[in-house]
C-alpha cells in the first residue's frame, strides 16, 4: 500500500487566512487540505480557480497553483486551463452569488460540457464580501441590507440547476459535518467529468444560523436524510423513511406498517436524472434535505474530446507543416 507522502500541512500556503472568525469557510479549507494528500494530489499538479466573493479567497490559502479570477467566471478560466492541460487537477471554488447570479451562464455551460473539473459551491445564502445583500439562494422574505422589507426574488436551487444542466456528478454536504464533507470531496475528486458539490456554509456575520436545522444536534437527524447508493431513504434515527406516492415523495413513519422495500431506494447511477431531480426538490421544512451524492454517472468529458480531436487530426494529416499549409490551394509564381 502506498502511504501518502504529503500531509495536509504541505498544502497550506504562507498567507494569513483572512475570513471572519467563526466562518464556515475555515472548515472547508481544512477538509480540503486533508483530502488532497489522501487522493494522491501533488502541490504542483493541482490548481484552484475562484471567482469573487468570500469563498473565492480560497486559492490564496492553498500551496498549489491558483487563480483568483473575476466575478462569476471561474468556470471559464478553468475550462481554458483544463482543455489545454488535462494533466492538471483543477478545482473551481465559488459561492452562491458567484456561481448562480453573475456566473449563472458559465456554471450551466461548464456542467453540460462535462469538463473534468471539481466544483465546490459554498452556499451561505448571502453576499458576504459586499456586506450582506440577499443572494440568489436566499429565501423569499429575507431581510438584508438591500431588502429591508424582505426579498421578493424566488430562490434558485443549486442542485436542481446542476441536474437540469446535465451534470454528471452532483452532491451536497455541510461545512461542519467533517466526515461527510471529506468523503464527499473525495468522491468528487474521483469522478471523471464535472463534479459539483454544494456545501451548506454558515456566514456567522451576515446570515448566521441559516442552515442550523441541518447542522444542530437536536434537529439534523430529522431535517436531513443521507443518500446512500442502493439503500432506502431512512432518517430520524431509523424511525422515518421516504416513500413515493405516484411522482411525489412522502414522509412515512417506520412503525411496522411500512415495509423497507416500499421505501424509495437511492440510485445515484440511474441513467435518467429524474430521481436525482426529485430528490433535489425535497426542501426543509416539508422534507428532510438529502445530503450526499445525488447523481454520479459517466459521460465523455470535454477535455478528453477536444484533445482526442487534435490527436486524431495529427494522426490523419500528420503534424502541421507551415510550408504545405501556405502552398495548399491555387498558387502562381512570379519570375
Amino acid at each position: 500500500m502506498n502511504l501518502p507522502v504529503l500531509k495536509a500541512k504541505d498544502f497550506e500556503s504562507d498567507q494569513d487566512v483572512r475570513w471572519c472568525p467563526g466562518c464556515g469557510d475555515y472548515s472547508i479549507l481544512a477538509q480540503m487540505k486533508k483530502v488532497l494528500p489522501e487522493i494522491g494530489a501533488t502541490q504542483e499538479g493541482t490548481v484552484f480557480i475562484s471567482g469573487i466573493g468570500c469563498s473565492s479567497r480560497f486559492p490564496y490559502y492553498m500551496n498549489t497553483y491558483g487563480m483568483h479570477s473575476i466575478h462569476g467566471r471561474a468556470p471559464a478560466f478553468a475550462t481554458g486551463l483544463k482543455s489545454t492541460r488535462p494533466d492538471l487537477s483543477v478545482w473551481v471554488i465559488t459561492g452562491d452569488g458567484d456561481a448562480l447570479s453573475i456566473g449563472g451562464n458559465h456554471f450551466m455551460h461548464m456542467l453540460r460540457r462535462n469538463i473534468d473539473l471539481n466544483v465546490v459551491l459554498f452556499n451561505n445564502s448571502i453576499y458576504g464580501l459586499t456586506k450582506g445583500q440577499y443572494s440568489p439562494t436566499s429565501k423569499v422574505g429575507s431581510v438584508t441590507k438591500s431588502t429591508p422589507r424582505g426579498s421578493i426574488d424566488y430562490p434558485l436551487n443549486p442542485i436542481s440547476i446542476a441536474i437540469a444542466a446535465e451534470a454528471t456528478f452532483v452532491a451536497r454536504s455541510i461545512d461542519t459535518n467533517i466526515k461527510h464533507l471529506v468523503a464527499t470531496l473525495k468522491r468528487a475528486a474521483e469522478h471523471k467529468g464535472t463534479s459539483f458539490v454544494e456545501v451548506y456554509q454558515n456566514c456567522n456575520v451576515f446570515n448566521d444560523g441559516t442552515w442550523d436545522y441541518a447542522k444542530n444536534k437536536d434537529t439534523k437527524a430529522d431535517c436531513t436524510v443521507e443518500l446512500e447508493h442502493g439503500k432506502p431513504l431512512i432518517f430520524s434515527g431509523g424511525t422515518k423513511g421516504i416513500r413515493l406516492n405516484g411522482f411525489q415523495p412522502e414522509v412515512v413513519k417506520l412503525d411496522g406498517n411500512v415495509a423497507q422495500d416500499d421505501l424509495l431506494f437511492h440510485d445515484e447511477k440511474a441513467a435518467s436524472p429524474q430521481l436525482a431531480f426529485l430528490l433535489s426538490r425535497m426542501r426543509h421544512p416539508e422534507f428532510p434535505e438529502p445530503i450526499g451524492v445525488f447523481r454520479d454517472v459517466q459521460r465523455d468529458t470535454y477535455d478528453d474530446m477536444i484533445n482526442a480531436q487534435v490527436a486524431d487530426a495529427k494522426a490523419e494529416k500528420k503534424d502541421g507543416d507551415l510550408a504545405s499549409l501556405f502552398a495548399g490551394g491555387e498558387t502562381w509564381t512570379v519570375e
Binding site: I49, M67, F77, A78, T79, S83, T84, L88
Partner: peptide, 16 residues
C-alpha cells in the same frame, strides 16, 4: 458560451 467566457478561457489557457 459568450464573449466573457471566451476571454476568460483564453486567460486560463495562457496561465497553463
Amino acid at each position: 458560451e459568450d464573449e466573457i467566457a471566451a476571454v476568460c478561457s483564453t486567460i486560463g489557457a495562457a496561465f497553463g
